[in-house]
Amino acid sequence: MPETKTRHAAGLSGSALKWIAIVTMLIDHTGAVVIEQGALEWAGWYWVDFALRVIGRFAFPIFAFLLVQGFLYTRSVPRYLARLTAFALISELPFDLATGDCWYDPGHQNVFFTLATGLVTLAALRWCERQKGSRRYWLWPAALAAGCAAATLLRADYTWQGVLLIGIFYLLREQKTLCWLLAVPVLAWSSLSVLGTAVLALIPLHFYNGEKGRPLPKYLFYAFYPAHLLALFLVRFYILGVPLLQKFPF
């Protein structure tokens, strides 16, 4: 009997998107942590940093999209939320050292807080969708607004724009064209400092084929996030010799 080969749909799988997000996040944080915080004197570093930050605008929209996919297929939302919350706490020290140049910065929380807030918002939106009658049509805007407000109060990375983007990806998951149209102004606004180039992240998302792809280690992204931030901080601190300001919130 001839051997049959498994055919894969054309496009990008979830695993491929995750790799794109991880690599572009590393590129982005190299600019933010090493070049910007390192205060390198050569004027040309500005353009190097700008290029790195443009490439980095792919990362968060892809992670926001993958969060929605994870929410749709997870077996347990509480366990999913517990993982995000645990790594939000684990990542806060490396995040503050890398981006805030201090041991603790209450004014800016890492992206896991944004994703955790987004996940809670998705659970609320799903509950709203299951309501009957006209209630659902005023409940879901209220739920989305509450999620955006929570991210802003937490001062999480990307604040309300991040949660709004997650909400758009979820609510319009069956209407790709409208989803992209509404995502464009949110992405452009969130990346004004780099000429709105976060909009380009919609290109790989457009080619998502709905397949999971080759499985990645379950906690690859979770562990990579604090690990790479700490590594970049150590490069800046020990190799470039930029001293830590040692700021405290008290």
Rank of each mutant, 00 (worst) to 15 (best):
W47K: 13
E41Q: 12
Y104F: 15
A51I: 14
W140T: 02
L202T: 00
E3T: 11
L40T: 06
W127P: 06
L52D: 02
I203Y: 04
T74Q: 15
A156L: 05
R155Q: 14
A64T: 04
G11F: 05
T177V: 12
L178N: 08
Q246C: 07
S191C: 07
V68F: 05
D157G: 04
A32L: 13
L154W: 09
K247C: 13
F60G: 02
L245P: 07
L195P: 07
A116G: 02
V68P: 00
G56T: 00
S15W: 03
Q131D: 13
S15E: 01
V186T: 05
A150L: 11
E129I: 07
A21K: 00
A43K: 12
V199M: 04
A151P: 00
R126T: 10
R136P: 04
G241E: 04
L195S: 13
L93F: 14
A150C: 13
C179A: 12
S91P: 08
L72T: 11
V77M: 08
T197M: 13
G14Q: 11
L122C: 07
E92Q: 09
N209T: 08
I239W: 10
L125R: 00
A183P: 01
L93C: 11
F250Y: 10
A198T: 00
W160D: 05
P2A: 15
W180M: 12
